[in-house]
């Protein structure tokens, strides 16, 4: 890196022949060092890019292995009676997970009924209002997204399940509430983002026609944002379906085909947890089968969400 401009001499040579020689020498020096530097930089680049490829391989390997292994074990456990029968007592072969499937569907359905209207209304508030209050709510939503899901389960326990609370015993509804709180910030932020994609011109055009603001929101904003709303809500559902921690101390789990949301219920994730942690191969088999069902459900929801949002992007273009 030394800044010798004229090798071997100090100061500027007086006659022009020496100057030309010096310039030539300098050029040669630059050319050589550039060649050396480029070779070195290319080598470093190759090594670094190679390391990045290795990183991709390392990050894909466990993720792909996980999905592939669950699929291979799950498919073996899967059968029609596995999906349509309730669990048998331990030690008795056969049995299925119908109670967990029904329980999960009811719990998630109720959570959606709670979270989506409130979340959409709150998103409308955020879209319509500027200022400190909206900012604070938005921040609260962002922080709530990162709250550990077990905290939401204990919250639901404290409010709905524990002694002296609103219901007072384990119930599917308490699990729905915990999942609704989990989904709420996701729904709020995704819906707000979707509504903001509706051009301001369309709002203004609607209002300029003399249409009531609520009507503009209903037929212009909500309709325009519909694909985004669907995507956001589906992703929230996909996140909630797989949760276990919020259900452990609210839903409790049940091996009976319970459909009353005020009673304890089964859930797919609880079935995986209770069977997977047992040392018996038969129980683990049930856990793998249930894990596969859950995986398919969650991936299907994510894929549908992605397809809807891709369609939205294509329309926008």
């Amino acid at each position: 890196m030394s800044a010798t401009v004229f090798p071997g001499g100090a100061g500027i040579p007086s006659d022009s022949g020496a100057l030309a020689d010096a310039i030539g020498a300098r050029r040669e020096l630059v050319r050589q060092s550039a060649r050396r530097s480029l070779g070195r930089r290319r080598l470093v680049g190759r090594i670094a890019i190679g390391l990045c490829v290795v990183a991709v391989a390392i990050s894909l390997a466990p993720l792909v292995a996980l999905v592939a292994y669950t699929t291979s074990r799950g498919v073996k456990a899967l059968s029609w009676s596995f999906l349509t029968h309730i669990p048998t007592p331990p030690g008795i072969p056969g049995g299925g997970i119908s109670s967990a499937i029904v329980g999960s569907l009811i719990i998630i359905g109720l959570a959606v009924v709670m979270a989506v209207p409130i979340g959409t209304m709150c998103a409308l508030f955020l879209v319509e209002r500027r200022g400190r209050l909206a900012g604070a709510l938005r921040f609260a939503a962002d922080v709530l997204t990162g709250v550990p899901s077990i905290a939401l389960g204990i919250f639901a326990y404290a409010v709905l399940v524990g002694p002296g609370s609103l219901i007072g015993h384990f119930s599917g509804l308490a699990g729905s509430f915990a999942l609704a709180v989990l989904m709420l910030p996701i729904v709020v932020r995704a819906s707000e983002a979707a509504m903001r994609t509706v051009p301001r011109d369309l709002w203004e055009a609607g209002l300029a026609l003399g249409v009531r603001r609520s009507r503009v929101v209903r037929s212009v904003v909500l309709r325009g944002a519909l694909p985004g709303l669907v995507t956001g809500n589906l992703l929230a559902v996909a996140r909630a379906v797989g949760e276990t921690a919020p259900l452990l101390f609210t839903v409790l789990g049940s091996t009976l085909l319970a459909t009353n949301p005020l009673q304890p219920m089964g859930a797919l994730s609880l079935t995986i947890y209770s069977n997977g942690t047992q040392p018996y191969p038969a129980a683990q088999e049930i856990a793998w089968g249930t894990a596969f069902v859950l995986l398919v459900l969650v991936l299907a929801l994510s894929v549908v969400a992605r397809v809807v949002s891709a369609r939205l992007n294509r329309q926008a273009r």
């Binding site: 993720l63 797989g242 949760e243 276990t244 894990a291 859950l294 894929v303």
Partner: peptide, 17 residues
């Protein structure tokens, strides 16, 4: 897309694995 999809795998399934 593959990595985004795998991000949706529930933690209970990762735990079981």
């Amino acid at each position: 897309v593959l990595i985004d999809l795998i991000a949706a795998v529930p933690s209970i399934v990762v735990g079981l694995w």
